[in-house]
Structure formats: C-alpha cells, structure tokens
Nucleic acid binder design. Structure first.
Length: 447
DNA sequence: AGTCGACCTGAATTC
DNA sequence: CACAACAGGTCGACC
C-alpha cells in the first residue's frame, strides 16, 4: 500500500484522548486497529498504538495519537479525481476542518475541568485521586447518525449497539472504498478483546461504508432486514423515524441540522416526535450532535451518580424513571455542574466504564522517551492546546465511586449545597447507600 | 398525569 | 458450562 500521507496537529491527550472518547459510547461507528509495535521507533508517530478510522460520505478519516500529536489523513476512493491518497491542499483543509468541528477543538477541555473542580467537590476529588479519564470531550456528530445510534441504544449495551450501527452501514450503504489497515498486533482474545470490547478490531482489508441517509430505511424491506441484523424491536423505530423524516422534509438531514438553531426545549420537542425517541435519546442527540452542551442525558448510570455521589434522591426506585423525576434530577445536576453540564456528565460516565478504566493504568502511547523528530509538514501547529501535563497514575481498578466512598467525602455538605431546600435526603439514607456501595464494589473485583 | 409490563438479542457475569 | 438477568429506554395500555 502506498505510503501514508500523515499530517499532524499539536494535541495534548489531556485535551483530547481518542482512546477514551471514541470508546466511551458516544459514537458507535469508529473502527479501531491495534498497531503492531514497529521494529524501530524512528519518529513520533511510531509511538502510537492504535489507529482509528471513520468513513464519511466521500472519504475515510484515519487518526493516530501520541503524547504530543494528533495525526490524521484522509483516504479517498481510488476512482476519484485525486486518486487514493490525495495531496490536494484544499481537500486536506476540509479534513482538518471536519476534525476540528467533530471534536470541537475550539473548546478548552482543560479549562472546563478546572472550572468543574472549582465548583464541584465530587469532581475535584475524582480529579485529584486520578480516577477521571483525561481527554474526554463531547463529540459533535452528524445528527442523523447520532439519532440512529441512540434509538438503537434503548435497553441495550454498547457492544451490541456498535455492532448494530456498523452492520446497518454495511447493509444499507454501498462501500466507498477498501482500505488495508496497517500491520495489526495479534488479537489473542482475552485482554485486548476486552479492552476494545466496544469497537471493531480489524486485521484484514476492509470495505468502508458511509452511514446511510434516512431515505435508505424507508421502504418496506427495511424492517425485516433490520430484524435479521439483530435490531430487535428497534427495527420499526428506525423505519418509522426514517419515514417521518423523509415524508415531512425535503432535506431530512438539513432539517435535523436546523434544530441546532432552536432553543433547547423546542429542539427536544421536535426530536420527541420520532418513534423510539424518549427523553434520554432526545437529550443524547441534543448534546452530541446539536451543540446543546448544557443537556445532561439521564440514564440509569447517571442517575446512579446523582444518587450515590451527590445524594440526589430521585424517589423513583427500581426501574422506570418518571418524567418529573427526570426533569428534577437533570436540573439539579445542571446546577451543580454549570453551563457545560453535558460535558461533565460525559467525563464522569466514561470514567465509570469498567473496560475504559483499565486504560488509566495503560496509557495509549508507548512509554518511550520522546524522540527528536522533524516530521511531516505540520499545518495548524499553533493550536490551542499548550497543556502538556498528562499525569497517568496507575490507580489499579479503582473507580471514581469507590475512591470517593473510601475517602469519605462529606456528602451532606454537597447535598445541602445542591439540594437548595427541595428534597433533602436523610443523612442516614446516604450513609447506608455509600456503605452499600463500598461493599458492592469490594465484592465486584478488587480482590 | 402517573404507573407498569412487554420488548429483541447476545455478550458478559454469575452460579 | 449452561442459565437467568442485564444493557446508557420507550411504547401503549391502563388506572
């Protein structure tokens, strides 16, 4: 295969960590290739251990990351005017522009984290003891793809959602190109597979398909096909949503994009019109594809935080969460976390995913001393990220909750601050909860 | 308005 | 090693 045309962007893993963000269950379509260790490390990019790729409508975006750089390249279909690997500066420009928008690189994540630490005791403690994953930011995805993915997420796990979304692209969209991934380290099952349980681990030449538009899911064969692909009861949700979208709007994707300009409440109402879209899914789409940074999608997991870490009592015990409980909990978390609450939630959520936690002990870049490099033409070298501190402390398998429990955070104080006189949990209940957590956690595997 | 069971499926965890 | 229960909810039918 031809030599790759890498470009790079100066980027600290504390601002963006591909390994953390792309596996955290925001997007379900990235392909991960674990790279075989190079025979000799001659330049910075050799230090990267993984490659990530995503097929857009006209190109494949390929990324690698080291301790200081984000490497990228775009691969186009061989039939295109510019051949398989383009050097057309104009096209390179559009790729970097896409990357900036997709990862929202104009947002200073480190600054946000410092703001959160200043206003939230729980967050600050987690950061202090090193249980929070660095570089977790909210993606700005394509709204339709995002909507599709989170309709699939209902009552489902990240691994299966990923396989569903990928198979949808494979079966409903023609391949754009074939790409031979670089030499991949052997996947021996256990550790590696577990570490990447949510993503495709590929070793062979692979066909890449763009994500199919809504119109691809409107005809009658859609539901049976989706059923056969393992979509289960979500098959008809997808079909109905696609139909409504196509029948009511001349340009469905443009319509979804237009929701960005609406106030959050109006945009949410619009999303709730679709079948299979409830409060949770609507909020995910608002946050992760329509720029509503303050929205905190509430799932059982986050409600768990709210209860155990912040002492918010939702009242709704067990399964279902009522609409009012949803709203109350959401607005309280927003009070605690501030205008970028959705981003805060993303960090906490990712930091509590078991298969990601291990990466705190296993940094994404090889622990080799930085080499002197004079590499590739570096466009955009004056990016925002000047922060270079990437402290990786091996904290074993501690979770945020586990540490907080054992550190005996003064929960009551937190509760009072955020409770603001509405629902006040008894300190007895809180004590019982945290104790229960402690025991549960211990049972679960720290021994 | 608020509550409750059904819903597809398979990979991970538990017994 | 086989078996429920579970997984980043939502729908539709009932009080």
């Amino acid at each position: 295969m031809a030599l790759a045309h890498w470009r790079s962007l100066s980027m600290s893993p504390s601002q963006l960590s591909l390994a953390h963000v792309l596996k955290s269950g925001q997007s379900f379509r990235w392909t991960l290739t674990r790279l075989a260790p190079p025979e000799k490390v001659s330049q910075d990019i050799d230090l990267a251990t993984e490659e990530y790729s995503l097929c857009l409508s006209d190109r494949l975006v390929v990324l690698r990351q080291t301790a200081t750089q984000l490497y990228y390249q775009a691969i186009f279909p061989a039939s295109s005017a510019s051949a398989a690997f383009t050097t057309d500066p104009k096209l390179d420009r559009t790729t970097i522009e896409w990357i900036k928008k997709y990862f929202q690189l104009d947002v200073d994540l480190v600054q946000l984290e410092s703001d959160w630490a200043a206003r939230d005791q729980v967050y600050s403690k987690g950061k202090q003891v090193g249980t929070l994953l660095p570089g977790v930011r909210v993606l700005n995805q394509d709204p339709w793809e995002c909507l599709f993915g989170f309709i699939c997420s209902s009552n489902n796990n990240i691994a299966r959602i990923t396989s569903m979304v990928q198979s949808a692209a494979h079966h409903f969209s023609p391949p754009l190109l074939t790409y031979q991934p670089p030499p991949s380290s052997q996947v021996t099952g256990g550790a590696i597979a577990a570490a990447a349980s949510d993503m495709t681990v590929s070793a062979n030449p692979k066909a890449y398909h763009p994500f199919p538009p809504p119109s691809s899911f409107t005809d009658a064969s859609t539901v049976p096909t989706l059923l056969s692909l393992g979509f289960g009861y979500r098959s008809k949700f997808i079909h109905q949503t696609a139909r409504l979208l196509v029948e009511s709007h001349s340009d469905p994707q443009k319509y979804l994009e237009s929701l960005r300009a609406l106030p959050t409440d109006k945009a949410r109402e619009a999303l709730l019109e679709f079948t299979g879209v409830g409060p949770k899914v609507a909020d995910c789409v608002l946050l992760m594809s329509l720029g509503k940074k303050e929205v905190v999608p509430l799932d059982v997991h986050v409600v768990g935080f709210a209860e155990r870490l912040y002492g918010l009592r939702t009242g709704g015990k067990g399964k279902g969460m009522t609409k009012s409980v949803y709203g109350i909990t959401q607005s309280k978390l927003r009070e605690v976390w501030g205008d970028w609450a959705g981003w805060t939630q993303a960090v906490l959520f990712a930091s509590d995913l078991p298969f990601l936690m291990s990466s705190i002990a296993n940094p994404t870049t090889r622990p080799i001393k930085p080499v002197k490099i004079k590499v590739l033409p570096k466009i955009e070298s004056s990016e925002s990220s000047i922060i270079t501190s990437f402290s990786v402390e091996a904290k074993g398998e501690l979770t945020l909750e586990g540490v907080l429990a054992s550190e005996r955070i003064n929960k009551r104080e937190t509760v009072e601050r955020i409770g603001q006189g509405e629902s006040k949990p008894s300190s007895l209940e809180l004590e019982a909860e945290s104790m229960g957590d402690r025991i549960k956690r211990r049972r679960r595997g720290e021994l």
